[in-house]
Simulated assay, not measured.
Amino acid sequence: MNGETPHVRLLPRTDAHDRSCLLLTEGDGPASRLADRMESMQTSLAGRLLGRTRDLLVAGGMSSDDLGLLAGQLADALADVLVVAESRRRRLPGAADHVPAFVLSGLRAYSLRTFPGQDLASARAARRHVRDTVQQWGLSPEAVDDLELITGELVANALEHTDSRTITVTCGLTAEAAAVGVTDEGENGVAVVPEVPRGEQENGRGLLITDALAARWGSLRTGEGLTVWAEMAVDVGSPGARGGSYEAVRERL
């Protein structure tokens, strides 16, 4: 690491389970350069496929089987290009304003863990994981309790409102703040942006708790899913007092 501001980059590929891949990077490492080449290749292939499609449509005489095959290829190419576009959008100037601070700068410690998305026990397991993690960072008992409670509510929301196969929980620590993020895979492949409930609404009460406890919180689209994050101010003393070292990691969501 060279001290530059790190950020999360959406990679132009998925893992063996068709889950989005993220890279925590400073922007110019070997993995980032490889991702640049992959993006260029994907957009080039999509352009060539589009040209071939136009030629075939002009020529006419395509069978229904040929049309079905072509539609599948176009769908795959469009999916690739949309991922590339989203990745590049996030790297535009000003896009970082919508990313939680623990992703942006001054990381002292970072943790990531994935939980089953179809198991209600994941909320309890995630709470325990976050408690154990942030206690090691030397946070106050009140901050530990609040982050644990927020995590449980956000994971419970993801379990209830999405059909995710996995749910990923991240924690981050800077000199001034600690944050937690919960990433799901969306509902039927669509990211559902949460809203704080109003009036007598029964759903989404966990967001009321999050809104009350966190200094700030928000959401960030991640591929077809969504990351809901919450941040609170903390004072952890001198650098390295209890926090773990910050390392570049590749996240598989």
Rank of each mutant, 00 (worst) to 15 (best):
M232R: 09
L50P: 04
D76A: 10
L147K: 00
V193K: 05
D80A: 14
G244Y: 05
G204L: 09
M62Q: 15
L226F: 11
P239M: 09
A177Q: 14
V99Y: 01
G244C: 07
L45P: 03
R9G: 14
N157P: 01
T43V: 15
E187A: 11
A214K: 03
D184K: 01
E247C: 04
M232F: 02
V236Q: 06
E185C: 05
R108Q: 15
G243V: 01
E176Y: 08
E86A: 11
A31F: 00
R48T: 15
R124W: 14
D80I: 06
R37Q: 15
E251I: 09
V83R: 13
L45F: 11
A109E: 12
R113L: 12
A158S: 15
D132G: 09
V84K: 04
R165Q: 14
A158M: 02
S111E: 06
A158H: 09
E39N: 13
T114N: 06
L220Q: 13
V196H: 01
L49A: 14
H7W: 07
R54M: 14
V83P: 01
A121Q: 12
A109G: 15
G117A: 04
A191D: 10
S164R: 00
E200H: 10
L49M: 13
A79V: 00
V58G: 09
N203V: 13
D76G: 04
S87H: 03
T166G: 13
M41V: 13
L67K: 03
V193E: 10
R19W: 12
T162N: 03
L10I: 11
G244M: 03
L24R: 02
D163C: 06
G240W: 11
L139R: 00
V169Q: 01
R250C: 07
V130W: 01
T183D: 04
A85Q: 10
I167S: 00
E86Y: 04
V249S: 03
D80L: 10
D235A: 12
A59F: 01
A59C: 08
T133Q: 07
V192S: 04
R113S: 10
R52Y: 12
L208D: 11
C21V: 15
E153R: 06
V134H: 00
A215Q: 05
D18I: 03
G106E: 11
R33E: 14
T43M: 13
R37P: 09
W217D: 00
V58W: 13
S32E: 15
L149E: 15
T166P: 07
G117I: 07
A214W: 06
D76N: 07
D28Y: 05
P194A: 08
L159K: 02
P116S: 07
